[in-house]
């Protein structure tokens, strides 16, 4: 914290009149990111799928689809359903498994300027550790994101994310095993996010990311059957943004480690809200599905905003003022 404050002061001192080039790079868990924009796990495959659509080298980081020690087939169809300003999904963490990831997916990711963060999933603490132990051999992995918040698998996932004791257990074991920094992805489906944020921090997490999806449901009234085979599913997209923003803000108030904000970001304005609330970086998720250039637009928009306000990103993060417009300073 003191270090961050010193950096902030130094940056402020540099800003004289004339040419101003905002710095939008950020350091989290000892890793340097060229900008604070990342693509959320499960919405960006293994990166390569987007290579012909956008310039991947411009991204802050790519967070790959959740990887487990062994490959997983996923849930039966239907797995997704669009809702008002959002979508439900219950994919069931279909993935190629840690070994195939290292052999077939990582070599491409390694060639990029964007950081590579691997989302890790397991059904038991031993599973998480085993997956990390396999991935530790991967050259070019910058960090792990521990998925203890998937709402669509019967055991593991959210079970760990909704019991603070289990959160501590799986984070501590994973941290011990991990060769790379550990980001813990939290579930929003809890009563008090602060309890879980602190549990992860106490167990050694280097950073937090939140939120994963909200547990939701949809029913076809003609057939009176669920829209998703898994019955319940995770809600994402613009619909969740205000709730996710509140949770991210509360998490930043609860811990000293960096927090990465996720939830319904489709524009630079959305991202800036998270950054002002205290997130050190953000992830673009569902928008990747229908507008693959969203992350790049967010990066450009953040830079433009910083330029317009003559602020470096570090000065913007957590700069939320008290009082509302009109009631105090603007």
């Amino acid at each position: 914290m003191a270090k961050a404050k010193a950096r902030k002061l130094k940056l402020e001192a540099q800003d004289g009149e004339g040419e101003f080039t905002p710095r939008i790079d950020v350091e989290i868990a000892g890793i340097h990111f060229q900008n604070p924009v990342m693509t959320a796990s499960g919405t960006f495959g293994y990166g390569q799928e987007f290579a012909h659509l956008i310039d991947l080298n411009r991204l802050g980081a790519i967070i790959v689809k959740g990887i487990s020690a062994d490959p997983l087939p996923g849930n039966p169809a239907p797995r997704i359903y669009e809702t008002e300003a959002g979508m439900l999904n219950a994919i069931g963490l279909q993935n190629v498994g840690a070994c195939t990831f290292l052999e077939e997916k990582l070599p491409f990711l390694r060639t990029l300027k964007a950081r590579c963060i691997v989302n890790v999933f397991g059904y038991s603490t031993e599973d998480y550790v085993r997956c990390i132990e396999i991935l530790n051999a991967g050259e070019g992995i910058d960090a792990y994101e521990l998925n203890i918040s998937c709402p669509n698998t019967r055991c593991g996932g959210i079970v760990y994310g909704s019991d603070p004791k289990l959160t501590e257990e799986v984070v501590a074991a994973s941290k011990r095993a991990a060769r790379f920094p550990l980001i813990v992805k939290l579930s929003p489906n809890v009563t008090d996010i602060g309890v879980f944020a602190r549990a992860a921090e106490a167990a050694g997490a280097d950073a937090l990311s939140l939120v994963n999806t909200f547990v939701g449901m949809a029913i076809d009234i003609e057939t009176r059957r669920p829209r998703i085979s898994n019955l319940t599913a995770g809600l994402s997209g613009p619909a969740i943004k205000p709730v996710a923003l509140r949770l991210v803000y509360q998490a930043t108030q609860a811990v000293r480690i960096p927090v990465i904000g996720i939830g319904g970001i489709t524009s630079a304005e959305d991202a800036l809200e998270y950054l002002i609330a205290g997130a050190q970086a953000i992830q673009v998720g569902t928008a990747n599905f229908y507008s693959p250039d969203t992350s790049l637009r967010v990066i450009d928009g953040i830079r433009d905003y910083c330029l317009r306000h003559r602020l470096h990103l570090a000065q913007l993060i957590g700069s939320l003022k008290h009082g509302v417009n009109g009631a105090g300073e603007h």
Binding site: G42, T43, F44, G45, E49, F50, L53, K65, G74, A77, R79, I80, N89, I91, Q94, N288, F289, P292
Partner: peptide, 9 residues
Amino acid sequence: LGVCLGCSI
């Protein structure tokens, strides 16, 4: 694009 895995059969 092959990433959401929503259409798997």
